[in-house]
């Protein structure tokens, strides 16, 4: 994973509540065995018309003025539903580095952080402000300081957001959690020795 310390980017808004991971990446794209090419399918059923290939001119991500946006501001409870990690893969593939909402579904949040996609929680007032700023001016840009857990709005207002210390450490240093777990092998062995009873699938 790449280190993630700062984000500076333009904002695009999808002001819809409860965007589920089936919308972020429909199930028919889950037949892949790698992570490539999912960006093209992000929000596929909103992004294209019935034929599946003609861009829907009303969908914001098809508006050339917002091309290159790297921060997505969305309605409440983003990423609910299916646990598919294809959702953050698709968002990253579509060029996003951060998603802002008032709340994230647990599994999405975990999956996003493991891939260096930053979920930023703000209050409803900030969310509304960002919705209208992004709507009025496609060049609206925000900056994020991961270390300080701080989001800076175009008017200079700074907002702190929650981020657990461990995820922050992993983002800042570009380390993934597997390395940490692999180092605990002795402790895991100790646990297994103390708790020997298991249901074996191979029995």
């Amino acid at each position: 994973m790449e280190k993630l310390k700062h984000i500076q980017g333009t904002v695009v808004a999808i002001p819809v509540n409860d965007i589920d991971t089936d919308q972020i990446i429909p199930a028919r794209f889950l037949k892949v065995t790698d992570k490539d090419g999912l960006g093209k399918a992000a929000f596929c059923d909103w992004r294209y018309l019935e034929d599946g290939t003609t861009p829907n001119p009303d969908f914001i991500l098809n508006n050339p003025a917002y091309a290159g946006a790297s921060v997505l501001i969305a309605g409440n409870n983003f990423g609910c539903g299916s646990s598919r990690e294809h959702a953050p893969w698709a968002l990253i593939g579509a060029g996003f580095q951060a998603v802002i909402s008032t709340e994230f579904a647990d599994i999405f949040r975990n999956n996003a952080l493991k891939n260096g996609l930053l979920p930023i929680i703000v209050d409803e007032e900030t969310q509304r402000q960002l919705f209208s700023l992004a709507d009025e001016d496609p060049t609206t840009s925000v900056s994020v300081d991961v270390e300080a857990q701080r989001l800076t709005l175009p008017d200079g207002r700074q907002i702190e957001f929650p981020l657990d210390g461990f995820s922050k450490y992993c983002l800042l240093n570009g380390v993934d959690q597997l390395g940490y777990l692999l180092n605990l092998d002795d402790e895991v062995r100790g646990f297994e020795a103390r708790n020997p009873q298991r249901v074996e699938t191979t029995a």
């Binding site: 646990s83 599994i107 493991k114 891939n115 597997l178 777990l181 895991v188």
Partner: peptide, 14 residues
């Protein structure tokens, strides 16, 4: 869990 975590459990059972 997500796929990264599937990897964690496969490799470490934790």
């Amino acid at each position: 869990i997500g796929t990264s975590e599937v990897g964690h459990v496969l490799a470490t059972q934790t």
